[in-house]
Design a protein around this nucleic acid. Structure first.
Lengths: 201, 201
DNA sequence: TTAGTATTAACCGGGTTGGTCAACAGGTAG
DNA sequence: CTACCTGTTGACCAACCCGGTTAATACTAA
């Protein structure tokens, strides 16, 4: 399945994938015209149907790909291990930002897919997402050594604060249409230094 | 204009407004069927066209109403004045949450409208939003008395952290479909107490 | 030249959409 | 009871859109 598509040069694959993310991220499954995706990818609709059996298969393929790449890239980034929470936070943010640069609409697409209600695809969507949901215990507070932090500090609240601020920042990034990675990296460094200054002994 | 609509009982007005927010928040302008709005509001499509001349007028009316209510409610909440920054933060959050309870899709609708590209409405959208954009200097750091805060604290960073965390929290609220105001209020109190504990002398 | 592959324009049948309109329900004044 | 008004609707229409197919064309490699 999808051999035809995988035989394409990577650049063209990405162009099609990003076109799919973009259109499906903007509209619901039903209201995302295949033709619009084709146009965005600068190919004909017929060719898209040559690579993918039908709209549904294209959609589910995109979702699977999105989950796989996100998971893979996060794994490789080292954002899941280590014991310096600030470092973990930093790696996670950088990685997500780079991902947003390469696949600007991927995360919006994934979120939208998660809430997709269309009976044509809803069940399969859940089946695809389920395995990755488990890994997202990322939300949970990792074990920390309290002696390194200021006395009396509520570590749970600290983590929540940092986590929410990160989400707020990423959300804002998603709204903007240009992503300047260099500036963003500086922002992260600044805010993480700030956190260190107020939380660490 | 819209006299017919304003003559309706408030409850029915709100039902129609919320139906509009919901559908227009889910789809782009073009792909939001008037009929879907009517169904959601539990009236016939024909009646909707009796209150509003056409789809465009309905859309722009909803946008104007959204901006007006948001602005009005925020004004009245006292979130724009006072000198206790934590209090300002708290009031702003509470107000926005209550708004989300009464008009669950209003903010999503407004944001979507802001990015609406459809040439049928894009220009008018900007014209409506422009005046309210100015007020949003709310983002800016209000004047603070440094002597009240811990020595050496970077007040700008502190504000940014709190602001981003608030946005992250609100964003998460928007994703969920049930809003439990009581729980949320408690969450706010907790995190604001936390901020006070780490930032204030 | 040939044979196979990549790519497309044109097409089709079915569904959707904004908007209209004639009709109807229910109240009310004469 | 009748005439009339106001709010409300189902049915309708013409235009358009959409997923999917197909027959024909461009490209490539042998």
């Amino acid at each position: 399945m999808n051999e035809k598509f995988y035989a394409l040069p990577k650049e063209k694959q990405d162009r099609i994938i990003n076109a799919g993310y973009k259109v499906f991220a903007k509209n619901s499954y039903k209201k995302s015209p295949v033709n619009e995706i084709a146009l965005e990818a600068d190919i004909s609709k017929a060719l898209l149907f040559f690579y993918f059996k039908n709209k549904k298969e294209l959609y589910l393929f995109l979702l699977k790909t999105a989950e796989e790449t996100t998971s893979k890239v996060l794994m490789e980034s080292g954002a899941y291990n280590g014991d310096d929470i600030f470092d973990i936070m930093y790696k996670g943010l950088i990685t997500k930002t780079k991902l947003m640069k390469q696949y600007p609409n991927m995360s919006k697409f994934s979120i939208k897919a998660y809430y997709e209600k269309d009976p044509d695809v809803a069940k399969e969507v859940l089946k695809i997402i389920a395995p990755y949901k488990k890994v997202e215990t990322y939300n949970a507070l990792p074990p920390l050594d309290p002696s390194k932090f200021k006395d009396g500090l509520d570590l749970g609240m600290m983590y929540q604060d940092m986590f929410l601020a990160s989400e707020g920042y990423l959300w804002r990034l998603e709204q903007s249409d240009k992503i300047d990675v260099d500036k963003i990296v500086k922002d992260y460094e600044k805010i993480i230094d700030f956190w260190k200054s107020i939380y660490l002994k």
